[in-house]
């Protein structure tokens, strides 16, 4: 399994972004592939690398990560997220082929809506332990629990923080007017 096989002696074999999107579309449907951004740089505006935006439902999230891992060990950047009303949408920002040749990295964002009726996500910790800080941050800031995350202690908020307040939420669990002090 790719997640277990990391070695300095096995360089990643990059594939074009189109091959990744074709495989994703085949397994998860055409609708799962969103924006494909070709990144240009330099004096001649030459195209270099690609950023992909994918989406998946929560139940098939781990399956999509495992499929991406067939291409390369996904380097995890961060989880971003927003309270979109009925759901909190999480965006997992990853990179494939970050150890490959010039201009061969493929940025991949996987967006997952987590409905407020069940604010639990499967943790990526057993696959990529580097997700720890980000999952803990999303847990305290947006109120999403991660199933499989061993350390669920607060990370950026103070020890005496009232944990019923989720700083990044925009509903009744978010900070109220009395909780915000404007300095200027």
């Amino acid at each position: 399994m790719t997640f277990l096989n990391i070695s300095q002696d096995i360089p990643p074999v990059p594939v074009p972004a189109g091959e990744i999107t074709a495989r994703i579309a085949e397994v998860f449907g055409e609708g799962s592939v969103g924006r494909i951004a070709d990144r240009k740089a330099g004096r001649d505006d030459r195209g270099w690398f690609t950023d992909l935006w994918l989406s998946v439902e929560k139940e098939r999230f781990l399956e999509m990560i495992d499929l991406l891992a067939e291409f390369d060990f996904p380097h995890f950047h961060v989880i971003s997220g927003n309270d979109d009303g009925e759901a909190v949408t999480l965006h997992y920002h990853l990179s494939l082929f970050r150890l490959a040749g010039r201009g061969e990295r493929v940025g991949v964002t996987v967006s997952v809506p987590v409905y407020k009726t069940d604010l639990v996500m499967p943790s990526l910790f057993s696959r990529i332990p580097g997700v720890e800080y980000s999952e803990r941050e999303i847990r305290e800031m947006l109120g999403i629990d991660f199933d499989g995350l061993p350390n669920k202690a607060l990370i950026f908020l103070p020890e005496d923080w009232d944990e019923t307040i989720k700083p990044w939420r925009r509903d009744e669990t978010g900070p109220g007017a009395d909780d915000v002090r404007h300095l200027s």
């Binding site: 740089a41 330099g42 030459r46 150890l99």
Partner: peptide, 16 residues
């Protein structure tokens, strides 16, 4: 670990 974004995803003048 041979990682450097200036190499694998050139941006700005690193494209040249």
């Amino acid at each position: 670990v041979r990682c450097d974004l200036r190499k694998t995803s050139p941006y700005e003048a690193y494209g040249d």
